[in-house]
Amino acid sequence: MSADEKTSSPAIEISGLSFSYDAVPVLEQVELVVPAGDFVCMVGPNGGGKTTLLKLLAGLLRPTAGSVRVFGLDPFREKSAGIGYMPQRAYVDPEFPVDVTDVVTMGRLGRGGALGFYGREDREAAIQAMRQVGLYEVRRRHFAGLSGGQQQRAFLARALASRPRLLLLDEPTSNLDLLVEEDLFQLLADLNRETTIVMVSHDLGFVTRLVRRIVCVNRRVFVHPSSEITGEILSEVYGGEIRMIRHDHILNGREAG
């Protein structure tokens, strides 16, 4: 993708969006434009609508009103191969007979022919994704035998396997230990050179060092450049319950923020 293409059409365009579950409003009058190549973090209180917004972008939910466009397409109607989605905590049946490779390869679904058999390209993409998240060594292990953090990384690899143009991550750090978190940090920074990333995170230290813009979601949506994020704005969003924590991640060769 050339630099021109990147800037010409936005990755995400949301206008006049409202969404309610059984007449309970979750999101109201959301306006949001995310240019291609951006790195956006969604923050906000629990129940504020972050995950719902991510699911609307993934095409899992249909807006009650307004429109969602991802690279110009309605994700609910036209499933594009360009979206990689990592759920917050997918329910995993501890006895389900799949190994790590099986799960990651599922990220290639919908790319092949009518029957969905996987070809060599699919297998290679899955292997590359497993290397990226550091799971290549355990690729033949029973999926349920992995630790919670490893399972989460497998779900990240599954999202990466489709080589998406837009990566949607719901709380990618919630289950990881600190060491792996560093690696994830670096990986996301690398990926962001070609991929637009939208993630939900509570980990504000992680967020402010890496992300370009913060989207505060609490029924309404407000956008801030990450440099502007102050305790004041955050306590406004979270209702004064939050403290700013800086992890001071060290990133070589890349200016964060």
């Binding site: 993934a58 899992l60 499933k79 759920p87 919908g110 969905g116």
Partner: peptide
């Protein structure tokens, strides 16, 4: 859910 995202 994931199968749905992949267009299945």
């Amino acid at each position: 859910e994931f199968a749905r995202v992949r267009g299945v």
